[in-house]
Design a protein around this nucleic acid. Structure first.
Length: 465
RNA sequence: GUGGCCAUAGCUCAGUUGGUUAGAGCACGGGAUUGUGAUUCCCGGGGUCGCGGGUUCGAGUCCCGUUGGCCACCCCA
């Protein structure tokens, strides 16, 4: 793409020009806002770790999927972080005794995976991670444990939903698909499926979209499911209500009573959070075969055309695996790539002008000389005075002395005020939104205060304009 | 790692069976216009046509390789 003496960005990375950086900020600020509203505190870790940290959980097979390296002359092998959970577990394990229970943490930052880019996937991306570590109320009885677990699970899902809602997405645009690993496993066991074959079935469920329905049904038959039952799995979605959490009870084709009862406490909590109408219970949500021990969920665009917007679940064994005390935990991750695609496709990404305003990038004042040499000499001092007062002040870099052109530039920069220097007579302040301007020039020294006050004593603009 | 499609200005694209010095719109800069954000008009900077090789009197155009992009597979923590 470029001549030999030029450089290009590595595969799967992005260059961010001002408008791109503004869009990225829009997303990260929404992440941060939802996290803070729900009482999560920000943490972070290194962007690279010892390679071993990632093989503990995922095995050696993971190595080919990540960027690993050694320092020249060094012996230790590092890897750019492909996910946050191992770092999170490491952080929590190191100070577990001193940390409050529960601890509610979030982070947002860059992650790296050495995979071939395609729609919704890059090699460098941003990811928002939200985790609820420990449980409220030191539950002792099974009933207390069930209630506290469901409450934490629902809080995590609610935080995710809250962020999507703030961006203008609703239950018609995105669906939260929830499954329950342990309930599914118990149910399969009750049907007589040996535990050794559960993983095999999960893999099959996970891959249902990549094979014809007939093949899916045929392979389910090997697990003792009838074609009618296979169709239930094919559709996947199970409705539950708070009034009748076991509403699938009457389903004689696929007796899901066990499953429905297992997710009833979560349904109740989701209803209390006011987000049950965002949710489908879906037996085909598997989330790989990794470390999830209970509830798992993914957020998908309703049309199903995109990859998952977010995914997560309960991982009660992981902190212990990384050397901490046994700690129940639940969390999720959301990447910026698919989310951006969904927002763009739905027209929910604000215009550049609105992004600049939301990010606080609008200039307070744009200083314009009226063409006299003495006025031009006053531009930089006035700009400096305004900036020293804490104002966002700009001036032109153009050579033109055409005041109309310069006002146009001030407007294009979305400045709130234009300050037209009239030489020794002073400065005319113009409100660029209302078109009003000061009747008589004001002394330069008064400009910062008048701009800051937002009421610089305007009179209506002349009708001649 | 495998496969398909694609690559001309910052962006969107045109470029005839291979034929002179590669074009348009938008964007950007200057001017018409030392005094008020519009409209209009004029002018200008910008490209070794992704890169390298081959065929040919002649290649943006045809062939091969390569790099990059998009899409799918694998995988998805």
């Amino acid at each position: 793409m470029a001549p030999a003496n030029q450089h290009q960005a590595p595969t799967g990375t992005r260059d961010l020009y001002p408008a791109d950086a503004a869009r990225r900020r829009f997303i990260t600020e929404a992440w941060r806002g939802a996290s803070v509203r729900h009482g999560f505190e920000e943490v972070d870790g290194p962007t690279f770790e010892h390679l071993d940290l990632y093989t503990v959980k995922s095995g050696q097979g993971i190595v080919s999927e990540l960027f690993s390296f050694q320092r020249t002359g060094g012996e230790k092998t590092y890897a750019l972080r492909p996910e946050f959970t191992p770092t999170l577990a490491r952080l929590f394990a190191a100070r577990a005794n001193a940390l409050p229970k529960p601890s509610k943490w979030f982070m947002a930052g860059p992650f790296f995976r050495a995979e071939r880019p395609q729609r919704g996937r890059l090699r460098e991306f941003l990811q928002w991670n939200v985790d609820f570590l420990g449980l409220a109320g030191d539950p002792k009885t099974p009933e207390e444990l069930t209630r506290a677990t469901a409450a934490a699970d629902a809080e995590i899902i609610a935080t995710c939903v809250s962020m999507l809602a703030m961006l203008g997405l609703g239950p018609r645009e995105v669906r939260v698909k929830i499954n329950h690993r342990r309930a599914l496993g118990d149910w399969l066991g009750s049907r007589g499926l040996p535990e050794a074959r559960h993983a095999e079935l999960l893999t099959l469920l996970d891959g249902k979209g990549k094979m014809p329905p007939a093949e899916f049904a045929a392979r389910l038959a090997a697990f003792g499911f009838s074609p009618e039952q296979a169709e239930i799995f094919q559709k996947g979605i199970i409705r539950t209500t708070v009034d009748d959490p076991a509403s699938a009870k009457g389903d004689t084709v696929l007796d899901l009573t066990f499953f429905s009862q297992a997710v009833a406490p979560l349904s109740e909590q989701l209803a209390q959070a006011g987000i049950l109408d965002w949710v489908d219970f879906d037996l085909s949500i598997v989330r790989g075969l990794a470390y999830y021990t209970g509830m798992v969920f993914e957020v998908h665009e309703a049309s199903g055309g995109e990859r998952a917007i977010a995914g997560g679940g309960r991982y009660d064994n992981l902190v212990e695996l990384f050397g901490g005390p046994p700690t129940p935990a639940v969390g999720f991750g959301m990447g910026d790539v698919v989310l951006s695609l969904v927002l763009q496709d739905r027209g929910l990404m604000p215009t550049d002008a609105k992004l600049a305003e939301a990010a606080g990038l609008r200039p307070d004042v744009f200083v314009i000389p009226n063409g006299l040499p003495e006025s031009e000499a006053m531009v930089r001092p006035l700009v400096a005075t305004c900036r020293a007062s804490g104002l966002h002040a700009r001036h032109t870099y153009r050579t033109t002395r055409n005041v109309g052109k310069l006002l146009q530039e001030a407007g294009a920069a979305r400045a709130r005020f234009a300050a037209i220097i009239e030489g020794a007579a002073g400065v005319t302040l113009k409100d660029l939104e209302t078109g009003q301007q000061t009747e008589k020039p004001v002394p330069p020294g008064e400009v910062p205060a008048r701009v800051a006050a937002g009421r610089p004593g305007f009179t209506p603009a002349s009708p001649s304009r």
